[in-house]
Nucleic acid binder design. Structure first.
Lengths: 111, 111
DNA sequence: TTTTTTACTAACCTCTTGGTAAGTAAGTCG
DNA sequence: CGACTTACTTACCAAGAGGTTAGTAAAAAA
Protein backbone atom coordinates (compact mmCIF):
# COMPACT_ATOMS: atom_id res chain seq x y z
CA UNK A 1 0.00 0.00 0.00
CA UNK A 2 2.92 2.28 0.73
CA UNK A 3 4.39 1.24 -2.59
CA UNK A 4 1.22 2.39 -4.32
CA UNK A 5 1.42 5.80 -2.70
CA UNK A 6 5.07 6.26 -3.54
CA UNK A 7 4.47 5.60 -7.23
CA UNK A 8 1.78 8.21 -7.59
CA UNK A 9 1.32 11.78 -6.49
CA UNK A 10 -0.04 12.17 -3.00
CA UNK A 11 -3.39 13.85 -2.48
CA UNK A 12 -1.65 16.80 -0.91
CA UNK A 13 0.50 17.32 -3.99
CA UNK A 14 -2.43 17.02 -6.36
CA UNK A 15 -4.23 19.53 -4.22
CA UNK A 16 -1.47 22.12 -4.36
CA UNK A 17 -1.06 21.62 -8.11
CA UNK A 18 -4.73 22.34 -8.64
CA UNK A 19 -4.52 25.33 -6.35
CA UNK A 20 -1.56 26.72 -8.29
CA UNK A 21 -3.58 26.33 -11.47
CA UNK A 22 -6.50 28.15 -9.90
CA UNK A 23 -4.20 30.90 -8.68
CA UNK A 24 -3.38 31.58 -12.31
CA UNK A 25 -6.71 31.27 -14.07
CA UNK A 26 -9.16 32.29 -11.41
CA UNK A 27 -10.32 35.84 -11.60
CA UNK A 28 -12.60 37.49 -14.05
CA UNK A 29 -9.95 38.81 -16.43
CA UNK A 30 -6.88 36.57 -16.28
CA UNK A 31 -7.83 34.31 -19.16
CA UNK A 32 -8.98 37.25 -21.26
CA UNK A 33 -5.59 38.87 -20.75
CA UNK A 34 -3.63 35.71 -21.44
CA UNK A 35 -5.63 35.09 -24.60
CA UNK A 36 -4.77 38.53 -25.94
CA UNK A 37 -1.09 38.40 -25.06
CA UNK A 38 -0.88 34.80 -26.18
CA UNK A 39 -0.97 35.50 -29.87
CA UNK A 40 1.40 38.45 -29.88
CA UNK A 41 3.13 41.08 -27.77
CA UNK A 42 0.69 43.72 -26.56
CA UNK A 43 1.00 47.23 -25.23
CA UNK A 44 -0.98 48.23 -22.19
CA UNK A 45 -3.23 50.54 -24.19
CA UNK A 46 -3.91 47.81 -26.71
CA UNK A 47 -5.08 45.49 -24.00
CA UNK A 48 -7.38 48.17 -22.65
CA UNK A 49 -8.97 48.52 -26.07
CA UNK A 50 -9.23 44.77 -26.63
CA UNK A 51 -10.83 44.12 -23.25
CA UNK A 52 -12.80 47.32 -22.76
CA UNK A 53 -14.93 46.06 -19.88
CA UNK A 54 -12.02 45.77 -17.47
CA UNK A 55 -11.12 48.87 -15.48
CA UNK A 56 -7.67 50.40 -15.72
CA UNK A 57 -6.88 49.62 -12.14
CA UNK A 58 -7.82 46.00 -12.36
CA UNK A 59 -6.05 45.48 -15.67
CA UNK A 60 -2.76 46.73 -14.25
CA UNK A 61 -3.33 44.83 -11.05
CA UNK A 62 -3.89 41.60 -12.97
CA UNK A 63 -0.94 42.20 -15.25
CA UNK A 64 1.19 42.58 -12.13
CA UNK A 65 -0.15 39.37 -10.63
CA UNK A 66 0.47 37.45 -13.83
CA UNK A 67 4.02 38.80 -13.86
CA UNK A 68 4.60 37.74 -10.28
CA UNK A 69 3.30 34.29 -11.16
CA UNK A 70 5.72 34.11 -14.06
CA UNK A 71 3.08 33.88 -16.76
CA UNK A 72 3.92 37.13 -18.53
CA UNK A 73 6.79 39.61 -18.62
CA UNK A 74 7.00 43.25 -19.46
CA UNK A 75 9.44 45.36 -21.44
CA UNK A 76 9.66 49.08 -20.81
CA UNK A 77 10.92 51.41 -23.55
CA UNK A 78 12.36 54.72 -22.41
CA UNK A 79 10.16 56.91 -24.55
CA UNK A 80 7.71 59.69 -23.96
CA UNK A 81 4.84 59.09 -23.96
CA UNK A 82 5.79 55.83 -22.24
CA UNK A 83 5.69 52.52 -24.03
CA UNK A 84 5.34 49.16 -22.33
CA UNK A 85 4.94 45.78 -23.92
CA UNK A 86 3.65 42.59 -22.37
CA UNK A 87 4.49 39.11 -23.63
CA UNK A 88 4.14 35.55 -22.41
CA UNK A 89 7.12 33.98 -20.68
CA UNK A 90 8.32 30.61 -21.90
CA UNK A 91 6.26 28.95 -19.18
CA UNK A 92 3.32 30.99 -20.32
CA UNK A 93 3.80 29.82 -23.89
CA UNK A 94 4.11 26.30 -22.59
CA UNK A 95 0.61 26.26 -21.08
CA UNK A 96 -1.11 28.46 -23.64
CA UNK A 97 -2.46 25.54 -25.74
CA UNK A 98 -4.18 24.05 -22.72
CA UNK A 99 -5.71 27.36 -21.76
CA UNK A 100 -6.91 27.97 -25.31
CA UNK A 101 -8.68 24.62 -25.29
CA UNK A 102 -10.75 25.82 -22.35
CA UNK A 103 -13.07 27.63 -24.72
CA UNK A 104 -14.49 24.29 -25.79
CA UNK A 105 -15.90 24.02 -22.28
CA UNK A 106 -17.87 27.18 -22.86
CA UNK A 107 -18.92 25.96 -26.29
CA UNK A 108 -20.31 22.72 -24.91
CA UNK A 109 -22.31 24.45 -22.21
CA UNK A 110 -23.66 27.27 -24.33
CA UNK A 111 -25.58 24.76 -26.45
CA UNK B 1 -13.88 42.33 -44.47
CA UNK B 2 -17.41 41.26 -43.74
CA UNK B 3 -16.56 37.93 -45.29
CA UNK B 4 -13.70 37.56 -42.87
CA UNK B 5 -15.97 38.20 -39.94
CA UNK B 6 -18.62 35.77 -41.12
CA UNK B 7 -16.13 32.94 -41.44
CA UNK B 8 -14.89 33.25 -37.89
CA UNK B 9 -16.47 33.78 -34.53
CA UNK B 10 -17.09 37.39 -33.62
CA UNK B 11 -15.32 38.91 -30.66
CA UNK B 12 -18.61 39.05 -28.81
CA UNK B 13 -19.18 35.34 -29.26
CA UNK B 14 -15.66 34.45 -28.20
CA UNK B 15 -16.16 36.63 -25.19
CA UNK B 16 -19.35 34.92 -24.07
CA UNK B 17 -17.82 31.50 -24.63
CA UNK B 18 -14.92 32.38 -22.38
CA UNK B 19 -17.31 33.79 -19.81
CA UNK B 20 -19.37 30.61 -19.82
CA UNK B 21 -16.19 28.64 -19.23
CA UNK B 22 -15.27 30.89 -16.36
CA UNK B 23 -18.74 30.55 -14.91
CA UNK B 24 -18.07 26.85 -14.60
CA UNK B 25 -14.49 26.67 -13.41
CA UNK B 26 -14.12 29.85 -11.42
CA UNK B 27 -14.59 29.52 -7.72
CA UNK B 28 -12.35 27.96 -5.18
CA UNK B 29 -13.92 24.51 -5.13
CA UNK B 30 -15.56 23.81 -8.51
CA UNK B 31 -12.61 22.01 -10.06
CA UNK B 32 -11.95 20.08 -6.90
CA UNK B 33 -15.52 18.86 -6.94
CA UNK B 34 -15.50 18.02 -10.64
CA UNK B 35 -12.26 16.11 -10.27
CA UNK B 36 -13.74 13.93 -7.53
CA UNK B 37 -17.01 13.26 -9.30
CA UNK B 38 -15.25 12.81 -12.59
CA UNK B 39 -13.85 9.38 -11.90
CA UNK B 40 -16.93 7.92 -10.27
CA UNK B 41 -20.30 8.65 -8.73
CA UNK B 42 -19.93 10.21 -5.29
CA UNK B 43 -22.18 10.65 -2.31
CA UNK B 44 -22.34 13.99 -0.57
CA UNK B 45 -20.58 12.68 2.51
CA UNK B 46 -17.82 11.17 0.42
CA UNK B 47 -17.14 14.52 -1.19
CA UNK B 48 -16.98 16.16 2.21
CA UNK B 49 -14.34 13.67 3.28
CA UNK B 50 -12.38 13.95 0.04
CA UNK B 51 -12.34 17.76 0.11
CA UNK B 52 -12.27 18.39 3.85
CA UNK B 53 -11.31 22.07 3.60
CA UNK B 54 -14.60 23.10 2.03
CA UNK B 55 -17.45 23.95 4.38
CA UNK B 56 -20.74 22.05 4.27
CA UNK B 57 -22.66 25.08 3.13
CA UNK B 58 -20.34 25.94 0.30
CA UNK B 59 -20.07 22.35 -0.88
CA UNK B 60 -23.82 22.07 -1.25
CA UNK B 61 -24.03 25.52 -2.77
CA UNK B 62 -21.42 24.66 -5.37
CA UNK B 63 -23.01 21.30 -6.12
CA UNK B 64 -26.26 23.15 -6.77
CA UNK B 65 -24.56 25.64 -9.07
CA UNK B 66 -22.86 22.87 -11.02
CA UNK B 67 -26.23 21.18 -11.36
CA UNK B 68 -27.85 24.35 -12.65
CA UNK B 69 -25.03 24.70 -15.13
CA UNK B 70 -25.63 21.16 -16.32
CA UNK B 71 -22.22 19.84 -15.31
CA UNK B 72 -23.41 17.32 -12.74
CA UNK B 73 -26.66 15.65 -11.80
CA UNK B 74 -27.93 14.11 -8.62
CA UNK B 75 -29.86 10.99 -7.78
CA UNK B 76 -31.80 10.80 -4.55
CA UNK B 77 -32.55 7.43 -2.97
CA UNK B 78 -35.53 7.25 -0.68
CA UNK B 79 -33.72 5.83 2.30
CA UNK B 80 -33.15 6.84 5.86
CA UNK B 81 -30.62 8.14 6.61
CA UNK B 82 -30.80 9.85 3.22
CA UNK B 83 -28.59 8.88 0.34
CA UNK B 84 -27.72 11.16 -2.53
CA UNK B 85 -25.33 10.51 -5.37
CA UNK B 86 -23.69 13.00 -7.68
CA UNK B 87 -22.42 12.17 -11.15
CA UNK B 88 -21.24 14.04 -14.21
CA UNK B 89 -23.78 14.69 -16.95
CA UNK B 90 -22.83 13.72 -20.50
CA UNK B 91 -21.73 17.29 -21.11
CA UNK B 92 -19.68 17.09 -17.97
CA UNK B 93 -18.03 13.91 -19.17
CA UNK B 94 -17.42 15.59 -22.49
CA UNK B 95 -15.28 18.34 -20.99
CA UNK B 96 -13.65 16.33 -18.21
CA UNK B 97 -10.47 15.52 -20.20
CA UNK B 98 -9.83 19.21 -20.83
CA UNK B 99 -10.36 20.09 -17.20
CA UNK B 100 -8.08 17.28 -16.08
CA UNK B 101 -5.32 18.62 -18.30
CA UNK B 102 -5.43 21.86 -16.35
CA UNK B 103 -3.25 20.33 -13.66
CA UNK B 104 -0.30 20.57 -16.01
CA UNK B 105 -0.62 24.34 -15.70
CA UNK B 106 -0.05 24.03 -11.98
CA UNK B 107 2.79 21.59 -12.56
CA UNK B 108 4.61 23.98 -14.86
CA UNK B 109 4.33 26.89 -12.47
CA UNK B 110 5.20 25.03 -9.32
CA UNK B 111 8.69 24.34 -10.68
C1' DT C 1 0.39 77.96 -23.34
C1' DT C 2 -2.90 74.58 -23.21
C1' DT C 3 -3.98 70.01 -24.71
C1' DT C 4 -2.96 65.31 -25.73
C1' DT C 5 -0.82 60.90 -25.09
C1' DT C 6 0.61 56.76 -22.32
C1' DA C 7 1.06 54.04 -18.44
C1' DC C 8 0.39 54.15 -14.43
C1' DT C 9 -0.97 55.12 -8.66
C1' DA C 10 -4.11 56.05 -4.71
C1' DA C 11 -8.31 56.51 -2.04
C1' DC C 12 -12.55 54.81 -1.46
C1' DC C 13 -16.54 51.91 -1.84
C1' DT C 14 -19.64 48.00 -3.13
C1' DC C 15 -20.75 43.40 -4.18
C1' DT C 16 -19.64 38.70 -4.31
C1' DT C 17 -17.54 34.68 -2.35
C1' DG C 18 -16.71 31.89 1.14
C1' DG C 19 -16.68 30.68 6.23
C1' DT C 20 -18.97 29.65 11.01
C1' DA C 21 -22.31 27.94 13.81
C1' DA C 22 -26.50 26.13 14.76
C1' DG C 23 -30.64 23.69 13.59
C1' DT C 24 -33.83 20.07 11.00
C1' DA C 25 -36.06 15.49 9.33
C1' DA C 26 -36.65 10.68 9.82
C1' DG C 27 -35.59 6.63 10.55
C1' DT C 28 -31.96 2.79 12.89
C1' DC C 29 -29.32 1.08 16.84
C1' DG C 30 -28.38 0.26 21.71
C1' DC D 1 -36.06 6.74 25.13
C1' DG D 2 -31.99 8.96 23.63
C1' DA D 3 -27.97 8.92 20.56
C1' DC D 4 -26.46 8.58 15.84
C1' DT D 5 -26.51 9.08 10.86
C1' DT D 6 -27.02 11.70 6.42
C1' DA D 7 -27.99 15.48 3.68
C1' DC D 8 -29.22 19.29 4.01
C1' DT D 9 -31.03 24.87 5.47
C1' DT D 10 -30.64 29.39 7.72
C1' DA D 11 -28.70 33.52 9.66
C1' DC D 12 -24.92 36.09 10.22
C1' DC D 13 -20.05 37.71 9.10
C1' DA D 14 -15.34 38.52 7.18
C1' DA D 15 -12.46 38.82 3.42
C1' DG D 16 -11.52 39.45 -1.16
C1' DA D 17 -12.37 40.84 -5.83
C1' DG D 18 -13.46 44.26 -8.65
C1' DG D 19 -15.31 49.10 -9.87
C1' DT D 20 -15.12 54.43 -9.85
C1' DT D 21 -12.88 58.57 -9.83
C1' DA D 22 -9.21 61.56 -9.71
C1' DG D 23 -4.43 62.50 -10.09
C1' DT D 24 0.76 62.15 -11.97
C1' DA D 25 5.02 62.57 -15.21
C1' DA D 26 7.07 64.29 -19.36
C1' DA D 27 7.41 65.52 -23.81
C1' DA D 28 5.31 66.60 -28.25
C1' DA D 29 1.66 68.72 -30.95
C1' DA D 30 -1.76 72.51 -31.68
Amino acid sequence: MDAKISTQKSIGTKHSILDKTLEIIRGKWRLHIIYQIGTEVRRYGELRRMIPQVSEKVLIQELKSLMNLGVIEKKIYNEVPPRVEYALTSKGRQVLPILLKLTTVGEVFLK
